[in-house]
Design a protein around this nucleic acid. Structure first.
Length: 407
RNA sequence: GGCCCUAUCGUCUAUCGGUUAGGACACAAGCUUUUCAAGCUUGGAAGCCGGGUUCGACUCCCGGUAGGGUCACCA
């Protein structure tokens, strides 16, 4: 049965702690979050750790931390499937009793006996919010295994039971689950669960259009976090990967994302992750920050530059701007040196006035270059501020000496 | 291979039968030099192929091709 739209929306974020939280899962969590918030719904956070071999506490912590960093909160959980054995057992017993599952004697495999689903062998048709109607003939699924034994259920069964128990109304997940859907629907029918609304999102692809993996560079959220991206910018970019509101807006706050989000506007094809565009989105978000915050970020981004960690090496040729001669450059630097003796608000204004008069580049370039010895760096005033008066004066003096010696 | 999904600039995308096919990132050129976590101007760049339907298809239908997903006692 399809859920009534008047019902309260309940979605789930169900990662399995078998690896670091990666960008694909982050985007899936984001879309669930946006959808739930948009409709005033609830979010259930569930850790799918039935694979005892591969599930690790370390990964569980990484998932929780990553969600927190992204600002994706949840209303219930985290639940761990490993702690819900009694619930699953009850359902398996029920299935065994009503004949929708049976104990099967195996000739191959690890166990002599497993629990199989009694497949009614029919065609299952479900409606996907993004792709429309999808049909499968489930005969090829055979009587698939649903549990190793009554205490050891497998993925598809636990998913269906948990979704049912949590009253999940919308399953928003990756495209890789499309072919899992019919067997889960069969299981829902066997345990008497409602059918949620399905929405299968396209995948994030590597630059060669293959599946994203560690081979293709950073894939875990923790790595992007370490690289210094703003969480809101990261969410913004992830949201844009496969979705857009149909307008030309590209930079969104979380609130705007929630406000404008719509499952119907999600793309059907996979999308390549483009770090250059992420950089741009991040930059745009930085511009929205208060000036003090921007300076802090800028300072952090250059903390390892040679001119911050040590003394800059000056190339005498590069001190002068374009065709301005050395004598004139010395004169400009001497003037700036003198102006620098004033207080910050004063000298900034004075130097600016002086360079407007003498030609900005003629004055500002030598100053910036003297301070950093680099062709690319933040502007001279920012550098003056970061370096402090004493260090700045020393470096300008050094540049003047270098010019005089070169004469 | 079977089944399923998908297909517009290099990338992310708009278009929902009639547009010079729009925007953004990236790229190129130029300007600017408080410029490299700026800004401005300009430029090149796309409907996978073949059939239909229609007065008219990027848009609807069918076929092909390509890519992706999935076929576990993993999740």
């Amino acid at each position: 049965m399809q859920q009534k739209t008047s019902e309260k929306v309940v979605v789930r974020i169900p990662p399995s702690p078998t690896g670091f939280f990666h960008i694909g899962r982050a985007r899936m969590a984001l879309f669930n979050y946006l959808f739930a918030k948009k409709h005033g719904g609830e979010i259930v956070f569930r850790l799918e750790d039935t694979d005892k071999e591969r599930s690790k506490k370390e990964f569980e912590e990484d998932i929780i931390e990553s969600l927190k960093w992204l600002g994706i909160s949840y209303d219930q959980g985290p639940f761990r499937q490993s702690e819900r054995g009694e619930i699953y057992k009850k359902y398996i017993q029920k299935m065994l009793d009503n004949g929708t599952a049976y104990v099967s004697h195996e000739t191959e495999g690890e166990n002599k006996e497993v629990i199989r689903f009694k497949n009614p062998n029919k065609t299952v048709t479900f409606s996907d919010e993004i792709r429309g109607e999808i049909s499968f003939d489930t005969t090829e699924l055979k009587d698939f295994v649903v549990a190793r034994n009554i205490d050891d259920p497998l993925y598809h069964l636990t998913v269906v039971i948990d979704d049912h128990e949590s009253g999940i109304t919308h399953v928003i997940r990756g495209e890789d689950h499309i072919s899992n859907t019919p067997r889960q629907i069969l299981l829902q029918e066997a345990i008497g669960a409602n059918r949620p609304v399905y929405a299968h999102l396209p995948m994030i692809l590597a630059p060669d259009r293959s599946k994203m993996s560690a081979r293709h560079g950073a894939v875990s959220v923790r790595e992007y976090r370490a690289m210094g991206y703003l969480p809101h910018a990261f969410n913004n970019y992830l949201a844009l990967l496969g979705w857009n509101p149909g307008t030309e807006q590209e930079i969104f706050t979380m609130e705007e994302l929630i406000e404008q989000f719509d499952l119907k506007k999600i793309q059907k094809g996979g999308a390549i992750f483009d770090q250059k565009k992420l950089d741009w989105v991040n930059k745009e978000h930085i511009k929205l920050l208060p000036e003090a915050e921007q300076k802090k970020l800028l300072l952090k981004s250059i903390e390892n530059e040679p001119y911050m960690t040590g003394e800059p090496e000056l190339d005498v040729e590069k001190i002068c701007w374009r065709y301005i001669n050395q004598g004139e450059t010395i004169r400009h630097l001497e003037k700036v040196k003198e102006l620098l003796k004033e207080e910050w608000t004063i000298y900034k204004r004075e130097i600016m006035a002086y360079s407007e008069q003498e030609g900005r580049g003629n004055v500002l370039w030598p100053v910036r270059y003297a301070l950093t010895g680099a062709e690319a760096s933040p502007d001279p005033f920012i550098m003056l501020e970061f370096l402090g008066k004493e260090k700045s004066l020393k470096r300008i003096e050094k540049a003047i000496m270098a010019l005089k010696n070169a004469k």
